[in-house]
């Protein structure tokens, strides 16, 4: 166990932060610019995972396991989200024959 911690601590914390920020930014950009729903879902996963990594890194550096507990929560949540999200995407695809997110911009004034 301590081994893993040491492994993690082998990389400076700043690197984790910069790396995760980059991944998170990529996720955000993906969500913002892509119109394909599946890619948007993947981008969201990317964001979640960047946060997970960061949580794990902080947890290891501070010796506080609750960060890792949160990682498990996030993973469970991501799994649920993907399940529901994919179901919605399938229904949308059946109705519109399209995975374009703009195809459902009907919920407005």
């Amino acid at each position: 166990m301590g081994n893993i911690v040491e492994q993690i601590q082998g990389v400076p914390l700043n690197h984790y932060i910069i790396f995760c920020s980059i991944i998170f930014a990529i996720g955000v950009t993906g969500v913002l610019i892509r119109r394909n729903v599946i890619i948007i879902m993947m981008s969201i996963e990317l964001m979640l995972n960047s946060v997970n990594l960061l949580l794990a890194a902080f947890s290891a550096y501070r010796g506080d396991p609750s960060g890792q507990v949160f990682v498990f929560f996030v993973m469970a949540l991501a799994a649920a989200e993907v399940a529901v999200g994919l179901a919605i995407i399938i229904m949308v695809y059946r109705n519109t024959k399209s995975l374009d997110i703009e195809s459902l911009s009907k919920l407005r004034w």
Partner: peptide
């Protein structure tokens, strides 16, 4: 203000970001 409710998810997310 109603006009902001455009129905474009991307726009909503953009505003959120």
């Amino acid at each position: 203000i109603r006009l902001l409710q455009s129905g474009h998810v991307g726009f909503y997310i953009f505003m959120m970001v």
